[in-house]
Each structure stands twice: as C-alpha cells, then as structure tokens.
C-alpha cells in the first residue's frame, strides 16, 4: 500500500501496522543516513541512529496527532534527528572518555537547520519523483528519465523507446508538470 500523503502515513503508523512502519523506514531512512554520514558515523552507529529516531517516533505516536497548526512534521523530525545525533556524541564521550572531543564538535542547531532545510527540499523532490513514476505511463517516465536525468540525446531516446522526438518532449513536459504539482502538495503537507 502506498501512502500518498504524510498525514495518511502518520495515521497508519498510529494504528501500528507493520507495513506503515516499513513505509516510514523506506521514506525517511535515506534522510537520517545522510545526516549520519555527514557526522562520519560508522555503519553500526548509522543503523543505531536510524533505529533511535524510529523508536522516538514510535514513542511519540501514542500522543501524537498530526496537526499542521501545531507545527510542521519536518521540523519535528529534524529536531528528533539532531537530538539523536547529540545523544550519540554524548554517549561516545561517556563510554570512551572523549576528553579531547569538545562539545564544539557536536553539530550546532543553527548549522543543522540550514542543512536540514535544504535536505528536506531534496527529500520532497525525491518523494515527488517516486510519485510521478507511479503516476505516469512507463514509457513517459522512461523518456523523462533518459532524456532529463541521464541527459541522453533526445533523438537517441526517441529511437530507443521507438517514439517520436515530439513525444519525448511531451513526456518531459508532463513529468515536470506532475513533479511540480506533487512537490507542492508534499511541501504544503509539512
């Protein structure tokens, strides 16, 4: 089952179904991993961080109701990830006596927020791209993928897909329009 909106995904998580957690994991893991890698965390620590963030979301789900007027989900998730990274640094300090490791090494919330906003935007486009792929016809998406994402010459794409050059341009235009629309919807949901 595909959850088309963040709200429906969060509602499904509240109902604790296994599949929605899988969806949540698939959707947000790449974002968490991105930040973990920026902090040069080991593979083990990365998995631990993903787990910690998911557990935190799991814990809050009892009381959490998605209400846009109460704040954006992305801000909530950003804070959870940032806090989890800070906790991880603290745990490291405690267990390995990181005397030399100053707290200055812990990413500050200001710089984190800047990167978070940019990454969130990328994440929105990534999700929108997946939705576009599921919405348009296979050939349309292939034409878009080959000509736009992989920058293959239009004539080559047309020959490969056995469609006209005009069709390749139409596919591009259709996908871009869908992408804008879906990215807007996703961004408004936050």
């Amino acid at each position: 089952m595909a959850y088309t909106t963040k709200q429906s995904l969060l509602e499904a998580i509240r109902s604790n179904s296994e599949i929605s957690w899988q969806e949540f994991y698939n959707t947000y893991r790449p974002l968490i991993v991105f930040f973990a890698k920026r902090e040069n965390l080991s593979l083990e620590e990365i998995e631990d961080l993903v787990q910690t963030v998911m557990v935190k979301v799991f814990k809050m789900q009892e009381t959490f109701r998605y209400d846009k007027s109460q704040g954006r989900f992305r801000d909530y998730l950003g804070t959870v990830i940032h806090n989890a990274i800070v906790d991880l640094y603290r745990a490291k300090r405690r267990s390995l006596d990181y005397a030399a490791m100053e707290m200055a090494n812990v990413p500050g919330i200001d710089s984190f927020e800047k990167i978070w906003c940019k990454e969130w935007q990328n994440h929105v486009f990534e999700q929108a791209l997946i939705q576009v792929q599921n919405t348009v016809q296979e050939t349309t998406f292939q034409a878009f993928q080959l000509s736009v994402l992989e920058q293959r010459p239009v004539q080559e794409v047309a020959d490969f897909l056995q469609i006209s050059v005009q069709n390749v341009y139409e596919a591009k235009s259709r996908c871009i329009a869908q992408l804008r629309k879906k990215a807007k919807v996703l961004a408004e949901e936050d």
């Binding site: 790449p30 991993v33 990328n122 486009f125 990534e126 736009v148 994402l149 871009i176 992408l179 804008r180």
Partner: peptide, 19 residues
C-alpha cells in the same frame, strides 16, 4: 525556471545512485 529544477533533480538522482 524548470531547467533550474532539472539541475536540482539531476543532482538528487545522481546522489541517489551513489547511495
């Protein structure tokens, strides 16, 4: 303007492939 968006999407796509 969409060309700018495309550059951004390519970047994401490229990063996604690396990932």
């Amino acid at each position: 303007q969409d060309e700018k968006l495309i550059v951004q999407i390519r970047e994401i796509h490229c990063r996604e492939n690396i990932r």
